[in-house]
């Protein structure tokens, strides 16, 4: 009886593993096949031949350009988010003032807003600023939509830092800026890394804004670039799979290195919102 139970548990786990990982392995393994191998053995995960040619052709077709664009906009947005979200969280968590709670809730509500409710005005605004079709058009929306979760995580984290720390600094005559930059900020490393990683994943994968605000290939980011590849590769499935693998790689690496941080961000975003 016990054996049967254990057997069914492992059976269940096996099915789950196949369901979640087979598509993934299919993507990676197909990317190493040449066209002939793909057409003779489209499903097999075992390779009879191995080639990196698909990766070379993906790079030749402009993958590097999309990759660099994604990297630039992700890193820059994340840096700005960390700066302005941590600044905003200082008064929200440490100072009592009249509209404290209201402002905090207003920021939190941002997590629930469907981006579509902002698309047309942002599109028009971008054109008016002359930023349409530039990578920089994405900066504002990306930072703004990352703010709610970041402010939430920072504020919660700062509330947990003991007050004594800053009281001691206050005795020494430190102002708010000194307390924030010298006392609190250096103590926020766990929160900062959670926010960096979580937002990086979100921005790296963002599609709608990238689709409507940018038209030329030289400024496009990876998700839209992949869409282009799909049109260009048509029957070259291994080529497309190489592009998909390359595009997914950074996020997966980030996750494997720092699992707990990503997870913390997720929970923060979902539980409160």
């Amino acid at each position: 009886m016990k054996l049967l139970k254990k057997g069914s548990l492992y059976g269940l786990i096996l099915i789950l593993i196949i369901f979640t990982t087979y598509p993934f392995l299919y993507m990676i393994m197909t990317s190493f096949k040449d066209m002939r191998e793909f057409f003779t053995n489209p499903f097999s995960l075992i390779l009879t031949s191995f080639t990196m040619d698909q990766y070379l052709s993906v790079v030749e077709m402009g993958m590097t350009n999309y990759f660099v664009n994604s990297l630039i906009i992700s890193i820059l947005s994340v840096l700005i988010v960390v700066a302005i979200a941590s600044l905003a969280s200082y008064p929200l968590s440490r100072i009592n003032f009249k509209f404290n709670r209201t402002i905090f809730i207003l920021f939190l509500a941002g997590m629930m807003i469907p981006v579509h409710a902002t698309l047309i005005p942002i599109f028009i605004m971008t054109s008016n600023f002359g930023l349409y079709d530039s990578l920089w058009a994405l900066l504002g929306p990306y930072v703004a939509f990352s703010l709610p979760i970041s402010i939430f995580i920072f504020t919660q984290f700062m509330q947990e830092i003991p007050k004594e720390l800053e009281e001691a600094a206050q005795m020494d005559g430190a102002g708010h800026w000194t307390i924030f930059s010298k006392v609190l900020f250096p103590n926020m490393k766990p929160a900062i890394s959670t926010i960096v990683i979580y937002n990086f994943v979100f921005i790296w994968n963002e599609f709608v804004f990238a689709l409507i605000l940018i038209q030329s290939r030289s400024s496009q980011t990876l998700p839209v670039g992949l869409q282009n590849f799909y049109g260009e590769f048509s029957v070259n499935v291994p080529g497309l799979m190489a592009a998909l693998t390359l595009a997914s790689l950074p996020v997966i690496l980030v996750f494997i290195i720092s699992q707990e941080r990503v997870v913390k961000g997720l929970i923060g975003g979902a539980v409160k919102g």
Partner: peptide, 25 residues
């Protein structure tokens, strides 16, 4: 003044790219 300065960048971004667009929609 401190509260205002600390909150300003975030509120401004939020206002320009989220609240105003919703209103404009």
């Amino acid at each position: 003044l401190t509260i205002a300065i600390f909150l300003l960048p975030a509120i401004l971004t939020y206002l320009v790219f989220i609240l105003y667009p919703i209103f404009d929609t």
